[in-house]
Design a protein around this nucleic acid. Structure first.
Lengths: 132, 132
DNA sequence: ATCAACCTTGACATCATGTCAGGGTCAAGA
DNA sequence: TCTTGACCCTGACATGATGTCAAGGTTGAT
């Protein structure tokens, strides 16, 4: 299967398929006589694994770890679970941080009349000195 | 005030102070005879504005807009509020996306025994074809 | 005079991804 | 057979916000 087809069936752009190869997430595929990459069903499955992991917010580095475990028949499920739960915690922290920003911003905006006068507590709030 | 002092009192790194100047968020400061940047209290206040806005997750581009409004005595508070609320919505969307990832990941991890056997629904889940 | 702590500019690195340039290849229709 | 359009190749530059390093000039205190 050519790279275009692999891209279509996995939703991974050709650019990123080549990138994953370069950084070692994907093994160098077979090449046809003309130099075109030729992907096996196994490679496509691996691409899908990467795409799914990206959709769950894993970094390429974390995905390298997951692929290593996937490839390793001696892995223990606890190793996998550890990586997954650590990432879930990370996601939770990041979501909470964004929510905290949102809440602080809404607090500021609450006092803003939003009419055509220039006075605005949002701007004055942003200009104030804040702890750290 | 030298850049080091400005950095200390605002918490903005020297690197970023120079960067904000380069991209036009900060006006070019006065220079001493030796070429050192010399910051006025007004400049320091502007730096603090930027730092606070960054803490609320505004991009430098959004901050440019906010600074433009801050500088403009003819602004209306509704212009400011519009920018702020749009960003709050953005933050909410991003937080929700992270939470959705987290929840999907925890769903996967729930079925994983986390012991020393190799079977792991997290890995098989990641390998499955998913609607994208 | 020396030394540490400043300051200067410039360049390279990060991370995941897009896009473009300048080519080669292939298949189908005229 | 020639052309056309859809593929494919590599390499390079861009993004955003930030860090870090290099190589040099300045200042202030001993």
């Amino acid at each position: 299967m050519n790279i275009g087809q692999a891209s279509k069936t996995t939703g991974v752009s050709e650019r990123m398929i080549r990138h994953y190869e370069r950084v070692g997430l994907m093994p160098p595929p077979d090449r046809r006589d003309n130099g075109y990459r030729d992907y096996s069903p196994q490679s496509v499955e691996r691409l899908r694994f990467i795409a799914n992991a990206r959709d769950l917010g894993f970094s390429l580095e974390e995905i390298a770890t997951l692929l290593g475990l996937w490839d390793d028949r001696e892995r223990t499920s606890s190793e996998v679970k550890t990586v997954a739960l650590a990432h879930a915690e990370d996601l939770g922290r990041k979501a909470a941080a964004l929510e905290a920003m949102r809440s602080a911003l809404l607090d500021l905006a609450e006092g803003c009349s939003g009419d055509n006068r220039p006075d605005c507590p949002i701007l004055s709030g942003l200009a104030e000195r804040r702890p750290r």
